[in-house]
């Protein structure tokens, strides 16, 4: 019976990632390489974060502290990844499918974001997903009618999409860094990353009724704002070409 739950949770958590990977990224070896590279950057960030968690024994049970250093580290490694890619941009352009394409930079940002999203989704959720094959469940403390497994699946799915938008906004921001626009966009990435992460604490809250719903609503709102930012950035760069269809 719990095979229902297993496939339900798996499709919910990894549906967008699977479809993006198999329908887009896997068609291009260079993008796969880029994705793996980005995935390793996220892994290193989370490795360092877990070292801190392991060393800081008294803070182990304090999720707020763990989120704090984990998010900061992830953002630092996002910046490091940007630095690396920026330096290697010329090379990347040469080996890419369309070396002359002016959209490559956005594609690289998208794929790097996908690498972050995929790794975080695998690392944070696969262990939980394995448990859904077994008959027992944990109910979500803030939403006692839903299982923690399924709520986590929804959050995993949304977070993986957040990572894609954050990466695209962040790359844009780092390129424009001295300007106010760059600072604002960078600040948005950091702030929304914290916002999403801390909103997730509502899931485990027993005092906030329907906390998991609030967490999902916050995720969706942030994702919507980020997506709008991404679209605006794209429009700014490639406005005529991308959005000409509607104008034509």
């Amino acid at each position: 019976m719990s095979l229902y739950s297993f496939f339900g949770c798996m499709f919910t958590a990894y549906g967008p990632l699977l479809s993006i990977f198999f329908l887009y990224i896997s068609r291009d070896a260079q993008l796969v390489l880029l994705m793996v590279c980005s995935a390793f950057f996220w892994l290193i960030a989370i490795l360092l974060s877990s070292v801190i968690w392991f060393a800081a024994t008294p803070a182990r049970d304090m999720n707020a502290v763990t989120i704090l250093h984990s998010v900061i580290l992830q953002e630092l490694f996002r910046w490091a990844l940007f630095k690396l890619l920026h330096r290697a941009e010329k090379g990347l352009m040469i080996v890419s499918k369309n070396p002359k394409s002016r959209y490559n930079r956005s594609v690289f940002a998208f794929v790097s974001g996908f690498g972050f999203g995929l790794t975080s989704a695998l690392v944070t959720y696969i262990s939980t997903l394995v448990q859904t094959i077994q008959p027992g469940v944990i109910m979500c403390p803030s939403c006692p009618k839903a299982t923690l497994f399924f709520i986590s699946a929804i959050n995993t799915s949304l977070t993986s999409l957040q990572h894609i938008t954050w990466m695209m906004i962040a790359f844009e921001a780092y390129l424009n860094l001295p300007t106010l626009l760059g600072i604002l966009q960078g600040a948005w990435v950091l702030a929304s990353h914290f916002g999403v992460s801390y909103a997730m604490l509502l899931n485990a809250s027993e005092s906030v009724s329907l906390g998991c719903v609030y967490a999902i609503v916050i995720q969706v709102v942030i994702l919507a704002i980020s997506t709008t930012l991404v679209v605006l950035n794209l429009k700014k760069h490639y406005g005529a070409a991308v959005f000409s269809r509607t104008q034509r």
Binding site: Y4, S5, G8, C9, M10, F11, T147, F150
Partner: peptide, 11 residues
């Protein structure tokens, strides 16, 4: 559990 599966498939 079936509801979870249906949501997953739809997603």
């Amino acid at each position: 559990q079936v509801v979870e599966l249906v949501i997953g498939i739809l997603w």
